[in-house]
Design a protein around this nucleic acid. Sequence first.
DNA 1: GTGTTTGCAAAGTGTTTGCAATTTA
DNA 2: TAAATTGCAAACACTTTGCAAACAC
Lengths: 140, 140
Amino acid sequence: MMTTVRPYARVLDRLKSAGLRPTRQRLALAKLLLEDSDRHVTAEQLHGEAIDAGIKVSLATVYNTLHQFTKAKLLREVVVESGRAYFDTNTSDHHHLLNEDTGELSDISDSDIQLSQLPSPPSGTKIDRIDIIVRVKSDS
Amino acid sequence: MMTTVRPYARVLDRLKSAGLRPTRQRLALAKLLLEDSDRHVTAEQLHGEAIDAGIKVSLATVYNTLHQFTKAKLLREVVVESGRAYFDTNTSDHHHLLNEDTGELSDISDSDIQLSQLPSPPSGTKIDRIDIIVRVKSDS
DNA sequence: GTGTTTGCAAAGTGTTTGCAATTTA
DNA sequence: TAAATTGCAAACACTTTGCAAACAC
């Protein structure tokens, strides 16, 4: 019992400290998402998982929730292709490897990639974030 | 006269060597696109420019043409946000700087950014391309 | 109770497709 | 004239929105 209660409490605290009311749907989605630390999901995928898990939630709410979580820094949005939004449960500094054949997206830890030279940002601006996507394909 | 004929011929040759029939629409779009070397356009933008220039072309044809040009390596697609495709007239190795406040996208030359360490691609795959997007915002 | 959140369906993007009419070589 | 290309409208995938009902505090 403890083993199920503890992660639930952890998720609840994370929602609370993000200023998000721990509603039934948000808690359930947060549990699905935040329990694992290296997930890349689309809204559609997460909705499917929630339904499979017996959670009654609409796709619109999944979208809204994903954006609220992103704004609260519980998630990060990754843009790899136009027309589909991926959300990453790993919010620490890191980059991505995309298999163009399979569409599979995986993390590259910040320490596995080194930028030794950077342009200086135009005056009046500062660097918000640097996204690196290493696109690979079958070498056959 | 010469000054207008020459770029037209250049564009015509580029279409021909890409194996694309130089139709009226393709020639016109190619002229709009390929004359300048650092453009980032959306289909909608280019369609607007074509109409303004008095070229009769449909949005569907603009989309088709952009994709044909991309396949023929006359353009390169840049993914900066989900839900909108940008096409870059600069097909050489380079990266991008995105102003998140204005949406403005500009080039970073390959020599202004140095990757000193890279992960090795998973076995059976090879690196196709590395996309780096430096996202900046107002520092106020 | 009061303000927030939800679900639904409807509307909104941006993009692609099917097919008859047109154009090109 | 044969094959490729075009335009249109309709279909598409993904995402957002408006609003009444349900819920959390």
